[in-house]
Design a protein around this nucleic acid. Structure first.
Lengths: 229, 229
DNA sequence: CGATTTATTGAACGTAGTCAATTCGGGTGG
DNA sequence: CCACCCGAATTGACTACGTTCAATAAATCG
């Protein structure tokens, strides 16, 4: 990671821009601007909590380890999202890691200043509270799905969720470039299982202009998989 | 459920008692006192959010349905805990249900008043925020465990967690009376699987003074199961 | 062009879920 | 007090899903 001169814009943060703007200058004075290359880690599970990150531009996966080779991706954050907030609370170590999936620019706010800013801006605190409430709901829904849906259903579900969250590009593809390995980690399954099921799900394939093959998902099958699970 | 005359005590709420006490009278004026019998539901998944519950005395499971016969227990709340807070946020329906596992007395606060009290007491809002942060951490840890641990490990884990949370009584038993069905739902497995594994885990059995049999868990095995998974 | 990683497929294995049968224990009513 | 009944406990057998391992093919990179 490297600190750069480029000014990140806190107003692009979904949570900040709904707040009274008279506090932003103070926040602005305390921010640092960082750039992370693809694959670099913003914060690491088990390390001391240092601060919060507001993503100006990029993509960050938040993941949690299990044993040496397994992990679960908890969330995929992008422009305007906040990450590192799981470091809040009594515990002073990050319970999760954050890794850039693309080159990513962030605003960084020191934890102690972040904490004090909560007190001075109840609006922001309220927004953050609502954000946590939404995250908790989502987390518990996924937890139930992990417990009771089969892999087909979880994959179908994840694809629809990601399509809904990231939208579609001009070609109708999901506006998110993610490796199969990451998609497997996101749905809580193995690379091989994901591979096989993705094949079942794509009844047709397209050849892109660059010569690469793209799988085209069958919407009806997606629905079917969810219902069967 | 029935509203009773008995005064519930908001100061017994873990979150309230850390706050400035000058707002408590206002909160106090807006509370209602309810009693729920074992098995009665405080709130139901899918229903309109009405308010928050502070448990004065009792035990409440928070659970989420999957299909008609399956559910996942997300949390077991007791004296001093708050439930119904998952109703906060943009969505106006409860994403989960709350059911009394024992006769339970609660303080009930109307949602609209609860929301306004957040604004007037930043301390309380801050405590609630930290509470949500802790819940989210816990939820995500369990999510990862559901994804990667096997059933043995999850059960062993859950038993240790519950022992840690509810403590042990004079006989060394976990201070929580929970049905096997509920324990299965809590660990995300079936009644039968839980049964078999609990048998494996208890290398000896005790006959209580009342003639009932009690399973005595083998601590070493618990540890082993967690490590193997 | 060789080397090394990533994709693809097959086969086997084990875990845990499902179904069904039986037993047990504790009421309840005759 | 006994016969009956019901739900919970207990156990066995079977099955299926998904992981794991291994082998091959394809692609990427220096």
């Amino acid at each position: 990671m490297k600190q750069n001169k480029k000014n990140c814009d806190l107003k692009s943060c979904t949570m900040c821009k709904q707040c009274q703007h008279d506090w932003l200058p103070a926040l602005d004075a305390n921010r640092k601007s960082f750039h992370f290359k693809k694959g670099e880690q913003l914060f690491i599970e088990g390390e001391e909590v240092k601060g919060m990150y507001f993503i100006s531009k990029g993509l960050v996966k938040v993941h949690k380890r299990w044993s040496d080779e397994k992990e679960l991706i908890l969330r995929i954050a992008r422009d305007g999202d906040i990450v590192g907030h799981r470091g809040l609370g009594a515990d002073t170590v990050y319970p999760v890691s954050g890794t850039a999936m693309e080159p990513t620019d962030v605003c960084y706010i020191d934890l102690s200043f972040f904490n004090s800013t909560l007190r001075t801006n109840p609006d922001f605190q309220y927004n953050l509270l609502m954000f946590f409430a939404a995250e908790l709901k989502e987390s518990e829904k996924r937890m139930r799905n992990l417990a009771h849906m089969n892999v087909k259903g979880r994959i179908a579900n994840a694809l629809l969720y990601l399509q809904n969250k990231f939208g579609k590009d001009a070609n109708g593809y999901i506006n998110l470039s993610i490796s199969r390995q990451d998609l497997a980690s996101y749905t809580g399954t193995t690379y091989e299982s994901l591979f096989r099921i993705m094949n079942e799900l794509s009844t047709e394939k397209a050849i892109n202009t660059d010569g690469k093959k793209t799988q085209i998902l069958n919407a009806a099958l997606l629905q079917e998989y969810i219902e069967q699970s």
